[in-house]
Amino acid sequence: MAYLLGIFLAIVAFWMGNSGHYTPLMLGFAALSVVLTLVLSARLKIIDREGAPYVRLAGLAAYYPWLLLEIAKSNWVVIKACLRADLDISPALVKVKTTCKTDLAKVTFANSITLTPGTVTVEIEGDKLLVHGLYEANTVPEAFEEMDRRCARAADPAGSAA
């Protein structure tokens, strides 16, 4: 029930933020569409812990500024690689082991790797990630340790964090 309430609040906030028309007719349509969306989500069975991840919100909010900084740093590297006169890159493919336990933490970690330019997660098998990197020197398993630790702290349940 709490998950349903969470999704309901998120959808209502989304509608309020996108509409700007608050006449009774429009609000009636809004109620109709919100109920329809909730019925559809119930039919899809996505009203669960992942559908309303409010518990992890604080951890993720603390994680994103750090991720933004990492993205800015690696952006600079890739921009230089794009604009150099000679194409000086050495792609590499490495296996990275993650300590993340839950699916949400793994997805956060893999998406963070993909989001930082210069590294892309190609495949996930269990707790091993196949990562393709633009520079061999930057794509070593040690380079992802801090991100892995922060992801585990942000998205894993508090008990199982390393």
Binding site: L87, I89, P117, G118, V122, L134
Partner: peptide, 29 residues
Amino acid sequence: LLCIVGTIGVLRFPDFYTRLHAASITDTS
């Protein structure tokens, strides 16, 4: 301008996986 840089990377890089990195400049920064 960063979008253009990413596009230049997409045009220049030698294979598909490296082009993916260049495209992610456009998508992020």
